[in-house]
Design a protein around this nucleic acid. Structure first.
Length: 980
DNA sequence: GCTCTGCTGAGAGGA
C-alpha cells in the first residue's frame, strides 16, 4: 500500500503522453518467473491503465516508452515485435551501449567519469595541414579502392545485401552529410553518424528489368583493424535505429579504411531488442546510482567486476572500477577471488581507509546532487513539448526559417540568420525569453530532426535572430525550425573526474591527497631571501609600496609557503587588487602562475586590473564568455594572428608565465604539458571541493582567496547540503591557522555600515583603511529642495507624518532600518517565487526621492534575496528616471558595491535563505555610504542572524524610524504627493 | 522552497 501511494502521484516535471511518441508511467510491476507484467498509464490522472509484458529492470515510478502495437490496452514486447524503452528522455550514446556489451560496469563508470588521457596534444596535431596530410596518406590507396568498388560515379561492382536476394546490388550514390548529430527520444538514443550516405539499391524484377531504389543509410568509418566485431556492428545497428525516423533505413554500412572493405549490417528485431535491453540496463544503473535505506542514502552497487585479465588490462576505467569496489561496495581484499584481490591491490593499494572514505563520501554527495539536477533538466522539453507550448514558458522561438546565406566564421563555427515565417507577434521575437549569448539547440518544428545543431545566440531583434552554430544548416532552406534555450546538462562529471584523479597513484595526486584529505599541516620556509631572486628585489619592493600591512603580510606568506596559503578577503578589503599585486610579484620573481576562479567574470576582473601593468598572460576559454577587453589575450585571437604549425602552437602555450582560466577550463590541452609554480584561485569559498581540486593538480603551491563568512557553494540537494557538500576547500583547510592571512582593512564602507558586519560576523576585526573611508557620506546636492517639497506637503496634509522620510533621506544617517510590520507588508507567493509588493512600492518611493535629491541612479543598487521580488521592483522602476539603478540578488552582488544600497528582506513568514548568516553578511556589506533596509521586524526577529543584527541596530540607535503609517493607495502620501 | 555558474561532446582505437 505504501509503495502504491508514493507512485500514484506523478511529479510536476514529468510529462506523459500517448500516441507514437508515448510516455507511460509505471504504476506496478508484477514479477513471476519468465514473465513480468507492468501496469502503466499515459495520463497524469493515472487512469485508464494498460499493461505491458517485458523483462527489463523497471521500477515503479519509472517513465517508459512503448513501441509496437497494443491490443486492447495490453502491450507485448516479444520476439517478433515491440520495444520497451526505459526512461527514454535520458539519451544514451551509441558508443556507451556498444561499450556495455563486454562490460556493463565499464559503461556505467564511463557515464560518471570522463577519462582524461585523450585531450592531449596529439589530438590537435591533425588540425594542421601538414600533419593531417601525413596522417591521411596511409589511407589513400584503400580509399581509392573503395571508391572504385562502391561509388556510383565510377563503375562500381557494389555489394550484395543478403536481405534481398543475391543479385541485389547496392552502390553509394552520394555522401549526404558527415558527423550528423542525432537525438532520438523515441529509442532514448543519441549519436554522431560518421557519414550519412545516399545509396542505390538495384534489384531484379520478374523478368530481366532491374528496379532501382534510393535510400539514405548510416555509414560508420573505422580506421583500425578490420575486426567486423560485434561492437562495431552494434554501433551501426544503433545508428540505423536512431536515424530511422529521418531516413526509414533498415540497414547500415561499416567501412574499414585500412582495407577499403565495406560490410553491410542488417539487424533483426531481436538484435535491436537486445541492444535496447543493454541500453535499459545501463540507464537503470545510471539513474539509480543512489538508493535510500532507512531514510539514509547510499551509493548503489555497480554491475559485477569482470575478472578477465585480458579485457581489464587496458580498460580506461580500471582505477575507478577498483576504487568503487573498495570505497563504496566496501569489499575488503580478503573475501574475493585471487584475480579480483590482485586487481584491487594493484589499483588501490596505495590508499588508506580515510582516503577511500573521502572518495566515497563525495561520490555520494555528487550522486545526490545529480538527482536534484536531473529533475530540473529542461532539455527534454525540446522534444516533449511543442514549440508553441515551450514559447509560452519562454526560452523558445518556433516557426523560423533560414534567411540569407550561412557564413563560415571559423573552423566549425557557422553564422546563421533565422526569420519568423508566419506573422510575428506584437512584441516580436525579442520577447521570446532568449537573449544574446544564450546557448541554443536547433531542431525542426515537426520534431523529426531533433538536435540538428547547437550554438550561441548572437543577436535577437524584433524580426530576426542570428546565431553561430556547430553545423552548416544551409541544405535545410525552407524547413521550419525551432530554437530552444539549452540550459545544458552539465552534470557532475568534472567533479567525479577530479575526485578520481585525487586517488591516482602519482606524485602530484599523492601530495594533494595528503594536504586535502589527510589535512597534513602546510609547511613554510623562514628565509625570504632564498626565494626572492636578487634582481627582482627592487621591483618587488616597489610593488609592495602600494599595499597596506595585512596585504604585505599576505604577499610574504605566499612567497614563504611550500604548500599553500589561504587569504581571507573580508568585504571591501581589496581582494582583486591583492591578487593582481600577487601576480605581479610572482611574475617579477620569474614564477609561473595559473590564475583561476569559478566564473569567467571573476577571472576577467583580475585580468582587467593586471592588464594595466606590464604583465603578459594567456587567457583560455570560449571567446563568447570572455570580457571584450580581455579578448586580445585569448588563445583564439592569438591563433587568428597566425599559428600554422604544431610548434608555433606550443610556443603560444609556453610563452606567458601567467595563464588564466576558469576552474572548469582545465580540460584544455595546455595542461597535459605545463606545470605552474603557483595556482591562485579567487572566490575559493564559493567553489565546491571537487571543482576546486581541478586546477591544483597543475601547480606546486597554491593560494586560495575567499571568505567563508560570505556565500558558500550552491548545493541544490537538501540531503547533500546537510552532509556537507557546501563546505569549500577554503573552509576545510582553514583549520590550519598558520596558513591563513586575513585582509581586514577595508576601503568600501563608512564606519557605521562597517559596524554592522563587525558585530554580526567579524567580532570587530574589520577596520577602515582611512579616515576618508570611515567618514564618507552619500552626496545629495538637491536634498534641500526635496525637503522643502516634503514640508509643504506635510503642511497641507497634516494627517500624514512624514518625519520618518526626512530622517531616512539624511546622508548623515548611513544606516536605516524601515520597519513594515505595522503596515503590514505581506509577502505573496507567485509562480516565479516570493515577493513583497508593499516593500517594492516603498522602495520605489524612496528611490524617486533620493534621485530627485541628486543621487545618481548608477550609484544605487537594490538587493533582495528572491528573484521574484527583483521582478516586482524592476517593474516599478521602468521610467527613465531610474535608468542605471541596478536591481539584483544578494548572491549576484557578492564581490561588488554601490554608494547606496537598498535591501528588501521580503519575508513576512519564515524562509530558508535568510537563515544563512553568510547571505545576510553579504547583503549588508555592499553599501559604501548609505544602507537602507526594508523589512518586517516582528517576523525577522525569528531568524537568529537578523535578530543579532537588529539588536546591534537598536543599541546603536539605527532603527531610528518605524515606518508605521498606513501605506495604501487611497489615503497615503503616494497619491496626494503626486510624482514624488 | 524558490539562491545559480560552469560546460560541446560523442567517439577516437588497442588487446
Amino acid at each position: 500500500i505504501c509503495i502504491l501511494a508514493s507512485y500514484s502521484k506523478v511529479p510536476d516535471h514529468v510529462i506523459l503522453s500517448g500516441g507514437l511518441n508515448n510516455r507511460y508511467w509505471v504504476l506496478d510491476v508484477d514479477e513471476r518467473p519468465g514473465l513480468k507484467t507492468l501496469t502503466v498509464s499515459c495520463s497524469k490522472s493515472l487512469h485508464p491503465t494498460e499493461t505491458c509484458l517485458d523483462m527489463t529492470p523497471v521500477c515503479c515510478g519509472d517513465v517508459v516508452h512503448l513501441e509496437g502495437c497494443s491490443d486492447g490496452g495490453s502491450w507485448v514486447v516479444g520476439r517478433e515485435q515491440g520495444f520497451l524503452v526505459l526512461l527514454p528522455d535520458s539519451l544514451i550514446s551509441g558508443t556507451s551501449i556498444s561499450n556495455s556489451i563486454r562490460c556493463m560496469r565499464r559503461a556505467v563508470l564511463g557515464d560518471m567519469f570522463k577519462v582524461q588521457s585523450f585531450t592531449n596534444i596529439n589530438n590537435i596535431r591533425t588540425c594542421f595541414y601538414e600533419e593531417m596530410k601525413q596522417e591521411l596518406h596511409d589511407y589513400l590507396p584503400a580509399l581509392e579502392h573503395w571508391a572504385k568498388e562502391y561509388l556510383s560515379s565510377t563503375t562500381p561492382k557494389g555489394i550484395s545485401l543478403k536481405m534481398y536476394d543475391s543479385t541485389t546490388v547496392v552502390t553509394v550514390a552520394e555522401l549526404a552529410d558527415i558527423e550528423e548529430n542525432v537525438w532520438s527520444p523515441r529509442f532514448g538514443l543519441k549519436g554522431k553518424i560518421d557519414v550519412t550516405a545516399r545509396v542505390q539499391i538495384q534489384k531484379p524484377r520478374s523478368g530481366s528489368h532491374r528496379t532501382s531504389e534510393e535510400r539514405t543509410v548510416p555509414l560508420e568509418l573505422k580506421t583500425g583493424k578490420e575486426s567486423n566485431s560485434i561492437e562495431h556492428r552494434s554501433q551501426v545497428i544503433l545508428y540505423t535505429l536512431m536515424s530511422s525516423e529521418r531516413y526509414h533505413s533498415e540497414a547500415g554500412l561499416l567501412l574499414y579504411l585500412k582495407t577499403g572493405n565495406l560490410h553491410p549490417v542488417v539487424a533483426s528485431h531481436m538484435d535491436r531488442r537486445e541492444l535496447l535491453k543493454l541500453r535499459n540496463t545501463l540507464v537503470h544503473h545510471i539513474h539509480n546510482c543512489v538508493e535510500k535505506e532507512a531514510k539514509r542514502s547510499r551509493l548503489s552497487k555497480l554491475p559485477d567486476i569482470l575478472t578477465n585479465r585480458q579485457t581489464c588490462q587496458y580498460c580506461p576505467q580500471k582505477r575507478n572500477c577498483a576504487l568503487y569496489e573498495r570505497a563504496v561496495d566496501g569489499s575488503s581484499a580478503d573475501d574475493c577471488e585471487d584475480v579480483v584481490r590482485d586487481f584491487l591491490q594493484q589499483e588501490t593499494g596505495h590508499l588508506i581507509p580515510p582516503q577511500l572514505s573521502y572518495f566515497s563520501h563525495w561520490l555520494l554527495l555528487c550522486g545526490l546532487e545529480a538527482t536534484s539536477m536531473e529533475a530540473k533538466n529542461g532539455r527534454k522539453r525540446v522534444w516533449l513539448q511543442t514549440a508553441e507550448e515551450s514559447e509560452k514558458n519562454g526560452s523558445c522561438v518556433g516557426n523560423v526559417q533560414l534567411s540569407g546565406p550561412v557564413t563560415v566564421q571559423s573552423d566549425g563555427v557557422f553564422l546563421h540568420r533565422f526569420q519568423r515565417s508566419s506573422m510575428v507577434p506584437q512584441e516580436g521575437l525579442a520577447s521570446s525569453g532568449l537573449a544574446s549569448g544564450d546557448r541554443i539547440v536547433v531542431s525542426d518544428q515537426k520534431g523529426k530532426l531533433v538536435g540538428l545543431a547547437t550554438g550561441y545566440l548572437c543577436e535577437v531583434s524584433k524580426t530576426s535572430i542570428s546565431c553561430t552554430l556547430d553545423r552548416d544548416l544551409s541544405k535545410f532552406s525552407g524547413v521550419l525550425f525551432r530554437l530552444d534555450g539549452d540550459e545544458g546538462v552539465v552534470g557532475l562529471s568534472t567533479h567525479l573526474t577530479n575526485l578520481s584523479r585525487l586517488m591516482e597513484n602519482s606524485q602530484d595526486s599523492d601530495r594533494l591527497r595528503e594536504l586535502v584529505v589527510d589535512l597534513r599541516p602546510p609547511e613554510f620556509i623562514y628565509n625570504l631571501s632564498s626565494v626572492l631572486p636578487r634582481e627582482a628585489k627592487d621591483t618587488v619592493a616597489n610593488i609592495l609600496k602600494g599595499l597596506n600591512k595585512p596585504q604585505k603580510q599576505a604577499m610574504k606568506k605566499v612567497l614563504l609557503s611550500k604548500d599553500y596559503t589561504l587569504i581571507v578577503g573580508m568585504p571591501g578589503t581589496g581582494k582583486t587588487t591583492t591578487i593582481c599585486t600577487l601576480v605581479r610579484i610572482l611574475h617579477a620573481c620569474g614564477f609561473s602562475v595559473l590564475l583561476t576562479s569559478y566564473t569567467h567574470s571573476a577571472v576577467d576582473n583580475i585580468l582587467l586590473k593586471l592588464k594595466r601593468f606590464r604583465v603578459g598572460f594567456l587567457r583560455l576559454g570560449q571567446g563568447q564568455k570572455v570580457h571584450p577587453d580581455i579578448l586580445p589575450y585569448t588563445e583564439e585571437s592569438a591563433r587568428k594572428k597566425g599559428v600554422h604549425t604544431l610548434s608555433e602552437l606550443e610556443q603560444l602555450y609556453n610563452k606567458e608565465l601567467t595563464v588564466a582560466t576558469t576552474c572548469m577550463g582545465i580540460k584544455h590541452p595546455i595542461f597535459t604539458r605545463r606545470r605552474f609554480d603557483f595556482c591562485i584561485i579567487d572566490e575559493a569559498s564559493q567553489i565546491s571541493q571537487p571543482i576546486c581540486l581541478g586546477p591544483l593538480f597543475y601547480a606546486k603551491r597554491f593560494v586560495l582567496v575567499g571568505d567563508h563568512q560570505q556565500l558558500p557553494p550552491i548545493v541544490q540537494n537538501q540531503e547533500a547540503r546537510s552532509l556537507g557538500m557546501d563546505e569549500s576547500l577554503f573552509k576545510r583547510l582553514e583549520l590550519h591557522s598558520e596558513a591563513v592571512v586575513q585582509l581586514n582593512v577595508q576601503y568600501r564602507m563608512n564606519r557605521q555600515i562597517m559596524s554592522l558586519s563587525n558585530s554580526l560576523m567579524y567580532e570587530g576585526r574589520l577596520e577602515c583603511g582611512s579616515e576618508r573611508t570611515a567618514t564618507a557620506l552619500l552626496s545629495l546636492p538637491f536634498l534641500l529642495s526635496v525637503q522643502s517639497e516634503l514640508s509643504s506637503y506635510s503642511k497641507s496634509h497634516p494627517q500624514h507624518d512624514l518625519a520618518w522620510i526626512h530622517a531616512t533621506l539624511l546622508p548623515s544617517s548611513p544606516v536605516c532600518f524601515l520597519d513594515c510590520s505595522m503596515v503590514p507588508a505581506l509577502e505573496s507567493v507567485e509562480k516565479g517565487g516570493i515577493s513583497n509588493h508593499t516593500e517594492a512600492a516603498l522602495i520605489h518611493r524612496l528611490l524617486s526621492l533620493l534621485i530627485k535629491a541628486g543621487c545618481k541612479p548608477s550609484d544605487i543598487g537594490v538587493i533582495a534575496p528572491y528573484r521574484q521580488q527583483l521582478k516586482s521592483i524592476s517593474a516599478l522602476l521602468q521610467s527613465s528616471a531610474f535608468t542605471g539603478v541596478e536591481v539584483n540578488t544578494v548572491d549576484r552582488y557578492q564581490g561588488r558595491d554601490k554608494s547606496l544600497i537598498v535591501f528588501s528582506f521580503v519575508r513576512s513568514t519564515l524562509g530558508e535563505l535568510l537563515k544563512d548568516w553568510r547571505r545576510l553578511n553579504v547583503a549588508i556589506t555592499r553599501a559604501k555610504h548609505k544602507l537602507l533596509m526594508v523589512g518586517s521586524i516582528t517576523t525577522l526577529r525569528r531568524y537568529a542572524p537578523v535578530e543579532k543584527l537588529l539588536n546591534h541596530l537598536q543599541q546603536e540607535n539605527m532603527i531610528s524610524f518605524y515606518y508605521t503609517i498606513i501605506f495604501n493607495s487611497s489615503n497615503s502620501f503616494a497619491n496626494g504627493g503626486g510624482d514624488f
